[in-house]
Amino acid sequence: MKDNNVLEAKNLVAGYTDLDILNGVSIELKEDEIVSIIGPNGAGKSTLLKSIFGILKPRKGKVIFKNEDITGLKPNKIVKKGMSYVPQDKNTFPSLSVRENLEMGAFIKEDGTKEKINEILTKFPDLKEKENQKVSKLSGGQRQMVAMGRAMMLDPDALLLDEPSAGLAPNLVDEVFQKIEKINKTGTPILVVEQNARKILSISERGYVLEMGENRLEGKGKELLNNEEVEKLYLGG
């Protein structure tokens, strides 16, 4: 059992205008883990990622990253602390080339960008072929790769992914999930929100089930996969 927390959210309360979406959610992400967050629509999964990353200011609760309280920091500060986030949609710069998208991922770094881009492109061979093409010309799956590649440019200490398989064809979904595993193997802890519960749980160390903005269940990925309640509710029986 690994017990080094990289990222921890404690009793987060957050929402838009006067409506709370999260009513006190707590999660932990430890070194080397993939942790998945599943749950029905409107459970607050994406809201949780947005409040961790500072896009939404939490009303209550704490976000601890690498033993530091980062609650309420703006996203541009949080990036500098070493966390990366890939939103669900509009997660690439469509009029920029693949290479330029990756370069933007390392905007805050002074040097070493070129080497890093080449490293990422070797990890994503599909992109290597299209490195000088505009991202708007790529397929949905390739765009998702660009988005993840961009987020990896800073070698983050934690990577947040919001529904990486959304809107992708089934064969591409598998490819994206393989990449997620591959990124994780190189030592990056990943917190991922997914609709595709079965697939994500099968590659996750642990998982959380959210419902109505609260923690409903948590456990090891395999355990949740075999949990009757989870199966009935989210895995389609």
Binding site: I55, V79, F93, L96, E103, M104, F107
Partner: peptide
């Protein structure tokens, strides 16, 4: 210049990518 084009594509993404908007 590339960051300008990125900003013109998607200001929010530019911000969360760490571009100094």
């Amino acid at each position: 210049g590339k960051a300008m084009r990125a900003l013109s594509d998607n200001k929010n993404l530019a911000r969360i990518t760490g571009i100094n908007v």
